[in-house]
């Protein structure tokens, strides 16, 4: 579990990475720091150490400056933080709806051969694309 201070620092950095723009909410507006981060960490506890290392490395730097330092000098830690920020953001169902992603959901397969048989006829007309081989060759 993150401390309040760690969580606040994460929120500030996450909002630099995922700002409010292009009709999309920021990380904080999407409840990433207080809700979805915990859910992401529940599934990826292995990223906790990297996240903490990133927050420690960020120190008291302003968030935008911290991101630059992390991206250039603390790459594994920054990857952990970035994976958690983006992964937590996409766990939010409202975010999924806004980007038009239904998630991996069951879809019964429909035969779509009728949509491409016209193109396939051209392939057949062009004929064989493999080489014939001699019936007997040297042994291995």
């Amino acid at each position: 579990m993150l401390t309040d201070e760690e969580r606040q620092k994460f929120a500030a950095i996450a909002d630099v990475l995922i700002p409010s723009a292009e009709g999309m909410p920021s990380a904080s507006e999407a409840a990433v720091p207080e809700k979805w981060l915990d859910e992401a960490l529940r599934h990826r506890p292995d990223l906790t150490a990297g996240l903490r290392a990133a927050l420690t490395a960020a120190g008291d730097l302003p968030p935008a400056e911290a991101v630059d330092v992390l991206n250039s000098e603390h790459i594994p830690a920054f990857e952990a933080l970035g994976t958690l920020a983006a992964g937590a953001y996409f766990l939010n169902p409202e975010v999924k709806q806004l980007i038009g992603y239904p998630g991996q959901v069951p879809t019964v397969p429909r035969d779509d051969t009728d949509t491409y048989f016209d193109l396939l006829e051209n392939v057949l007309e062009r004929g064989q694309v493999y080489r014939d081989v001699p019936t007997a060759g040297p042994d291995a």
Partner: peptide, 8 residues
């Protein structure tokens, strides 16, 4: 890869 380009 981040900032406004994250969304774009």
């Amino acid at each position: 890869s981040w900032g406004v380009n994250f969304h774009r």
